[in-house]
C-alpha cells in the first residue's frame, strides 16, 4: 500500500553503534526518531541562542520571538506554581519547547513525529511525575502525603476520597502521555487517510478528480487544525506540568 497511514510512524535505523552484526541489547541504533529528536534540540537551541546573540536593548524580530516564548512560559509557571515554582522554569520551558517543536516538525511532509510514539510521551510524563514526587518529598517530607487528603473534607468521607485521590495521582502520567501521543497519532493518521483519498479518487478519471476536491478541502482544514493541536498540546503538557509541580510545592489543597 502506497498510502498506508501507519507507515509514517515506522522507526527505521539510520546507523548503529557497536555490536556490529550481533543482535542483542548492546546495539545502539540511531533511528529516524533519534534524528528528529536531535534536530528538535538543535533547532530550539540554535534559534534561542542565535536570536539573542545581540542582546539588543531594543529587540529585533527573532529576539522578540525568543523573549515572547520566555515570558509566555514564565507567566504560565508563575501563575500555576507561584514564584517558588520558577526554579522549575528551565525544566518546563525545555519540555514545552521540545514538545512544541517536535509536534511542528511532524507537520512537515516526510518528517518523523517524535511525539507520536507512546514511549516518548510516557517517558516525558514519567520524568515530570518523578520530579514532582522527588521534590515533593524533599521539600515537604511526609507532609507531601497531605496531597491525598483534601483539606476541609469531613472525616467519614476520607476513606472514599483518599483512594480516589491516589488513583487520580497515579493516572496522571498515563493521561499526560496518552493525551499527547493520541492527539499526534490520530491527527497524523487522519491527515494521511484523507490525503490518500485524494490520490485514489483522482485515479478514477474526471468524476474522481471532481470528487477528490472534497477530501482535498478536508486535508487543508485538517492541516490547519493539526497546527493548532500541535501548539495546544504542547501548551497543555506544559500547563499540566506546572500544576503538578505546584502540588509538589504546596501539597495541601
Amino acid at each position: 500500500m502506497a498510502n498506508d497511514p501507519i507507515k509514517q510512524f515506522k522507526i527505521t535505523d539510520i546507523f548503529t553503534i557497536g555490536g556490529e552484526g550481533e543482535t542483542g541489547g548492546f546495539e545502539i541504533a540511531f533511528t529516524n526518531s533519534a534524528l528528529f529528536m536531535v534536530l528538535t534540540v538543535v533547532a530550539i537551541s540554535a534559534f534561542l541562542i542565535l536570536s539573542t546573540r545581540g542582546r539588543g536593548l531594543v529587540p529585533g524580530r527573532l529576539q522578540l520571538l525568543s523573549e515572547m516564548m520566555y515570558e509566555f512560559v514564565a507567566n504560565m509557571v508563575r501563575s500555576s506554581a507561584g514564584t517558588e515554582g520558577m526554579k522549575f522554569f528551565p525544566f518546563v520551558f525545555s519540555l514545552f519547547m521540545f514538545v512544541l517543536v517536535a509536534n511542528l516538525f511532524g507537520m512537515v511532509p516526510y518528517f518523523f513525529t517524535v511525539t507520536s510514539h507512546i514511549i516518548v510521551t510516557f517517558a516525558l510524563a514519567m520524568l515530570v511525575i518523578s520530579v514532582v514526587i522527588i521534590y515533593g518529598f524533599m521539600r515537604n517530607g511526609l507532609g507531601f502525603l497531605k496531597l491525598f487528603v483534601p483539606a476541609g473534607v469531613p472525616g467519614y468521607v476520607l476513606p472514599i476520597v483518599i483512594p480516589i485521590e491516589i488513583v487520580s495521582f497515579l493516572s496522571r502520567p498515563i493521561s499526560l502521555s496518552v493525551r499527547l501521543f493520541a492527539n499526534m497519532l490520530a491527527g497524523h493518521i487522519t491527515l494521511k487517510v484523507f490525503a490518500g483519498f485524494i490520490v485514489s479518487l483522482s485515479s478514477l478519471g474526471a468524476v474522481g478528480v471532481l470528487g477528490a476536491t472534497l477530501p482535498f478541502a478536508m486535508t487543508v482544514a485538517l492541516t490547519a487544525l493539526e497546527f493548532l493541536v500541535s501548539a495546544l498540546q504542547a501548551y497543555v503538557f506544559a500547563v499540566l506540568t506546572s500544576m503538578y509541580l505546584n502540588d509538589a510545592i504546596h501539597p495541601s489543597h
Binding site: I28, T31, A34, T40, V41, L124
Partner: peptide
C-alpha cells in the same frame, strides 16, 4: 533506542 536518545537529547536541551 528511543528512550536512550530521548534521554540524551532532552538532557542536552
Amino acid at each position: 533506542s528511543q528512550l536512550l536518545w530521548l534521554a540524551l537529547t532532552f538532557a542536552a536541551l
